[in-house]
Design a protein around this nucleic acid. Sequence first.
DNA 1: GGAATAGTTCGACGATCGTCGAACGTTGGG
DNA 2: CCCAACGTTCGACGATCGTCGAACTATTCC
Lengths: 107, 107
Amino acid sequence: MSTDHATELHHPVRDELQLGEVLHALSDPVRLQIVQVLDRADGEVACGQFPLPVGKSTASHHFKVLREAGVVHERHEGTRRLHALRIDDLDARFPGLLATVLRAAAR
Amino acid sequence: MSTDHATELHHPVRDELQLGEVLHALSDPVRLQIVQVLDRADGEVACGQFPLPVGKSTASHHFKVLREAGVVHERHEGTRRLHALRIDDLDARFPGLLATVLRAAAR
DNA sequence: GGAATAGTTCGACGATCGTCGAACGTTGGG
DNA sequence: CCCAACGTTCGACGATCGTCGAACTATTCC
């Protein structure tokens, strides 16, 4: 059986996205790294897929920050949590912001 | 008499600018407000010119953060400190970043 | 020289942050 | 049913943050 658990995690809706929160979420090196991987993956990635330099509890914390800032969407699938960038919503609120940051981070 | 005091304050050079520091500097509402005023002013503005919701010591602190992140340039003129956005340097390191953030903040 | 102007520096404070490890769910497979 | 896999939650910790007021510095003007 599989119920939809995606709505159980509070994701802010598009209009609630705050620039300050997004910038703060992106200002941490670990979280920026996560966002970069997510961008390259161009799809959904599980937490374990990331070669992060921190323990799992810390990683879990960072994913929560990204989710609550509205940067990523999180979905439950079995024991894994799949994450994806909310590019559409971010681009609607802050056009070009994520792309610009990713390009800046890539160099 | 007037010596050049501009070099006494440590401004990071263009190549030293760190994306994380810049994003963190811009993630604070007061600092974002300063940057917005600076952008609209299109030139140099003294600290006192800003209608900030904080005391002068706090304002001084925020200007320091912006300066050390490389977002603004500070220059001494008499008793005043004149500030200006380092758009050229920022655009060289992180093309379009400041403009995108400012456009996002404007809405 | 003295007063006024414009900011900085210096603790201090409570709040938030990033990190960890241990314990706790939850799901899927033998 | 039990165990392994995958993450979350829960303190706890030291570090950083944003804020303030008081004292200080530097410059200008009378």
